[in-house]
Amino acid sequence: MGPLRAFAAAILSLAAAALPAAAQTPATESIQIGLSTDAISITAGFSGADLTIFGSLENPDPLIARQGRYDVIVVLEGPARPVVVRRKDRVLGVWINLESETFENVPVSYSVATTRPLQDITEPNSYKQLSLGASNLYMQPAEPSDSPITIEEFTSALRERKTATGLYSENVGGVQFLSQNLFRATVRLAPNIPVGTHKARAFLFKSGMFVKESSAQLEIRKSGFEQSIFRVAHDYSFLYGVFAVSLAMLTGWLGRIVFRKD
């Protein structure tokens, strides 16, 4: 977009503000999403859930909206961590982890909700540019000097494993327009969703062109008795060990008293 056209658009938007009834609404659509809470606590028995995110389109073109040419993709992305992918190979008949590839900053979870199938919304290239969708996420190998074929193989294995365990998911049709402005997105939270700061992002496409992005943060915490144990085991690991040993001795001693035979 040249400076002249940007200037023209600015004028037009001024005009639109002044004259709301103007026939031509300028292309200043934007997208907003809202979360009802900025933190979710999940209990130990958590078996997965759907998270609903509401959002709105601002200044949509009614004509385009009516033709259904607005598309929204909502992503809930988990914290990024390094991951080692290992491959088992047969050595003398035994399956052994031989080859491995480490990737930096791999989102632990990645749930997508879309209005339509991804391939119908826009070109593969723009997904690549936006690094949008599980298959377009760039996985940074720790050793970029490894052969591209190997890296490609382990990258796809990483995606496949993540999808198989439900951490990477795609919910086609998970974004629905409730009115011209309002939409609702349903993203899946896997049972083994990691704790930490998750990022919800919404991408707006207009007739296959990317328009705008908006994001919000969501903290996922685990709560309950089991979680306290987990925290103690990590934060006070020595005391936890002492407790585990004492519990075992106590159980052994009580067992002798209760079932005493001699």
Partner: peptide, 15 residues
């Protein structure tokens, strides 16, 4: 278990 072909040859682990 050591000799049977595993259902999945790839596994993920944290660092």
């Amino acid at each position: 278990d050591l000799f049977v072909t595993p259902p999945n040859r790839y596994s993920l682990a944290g660092l």
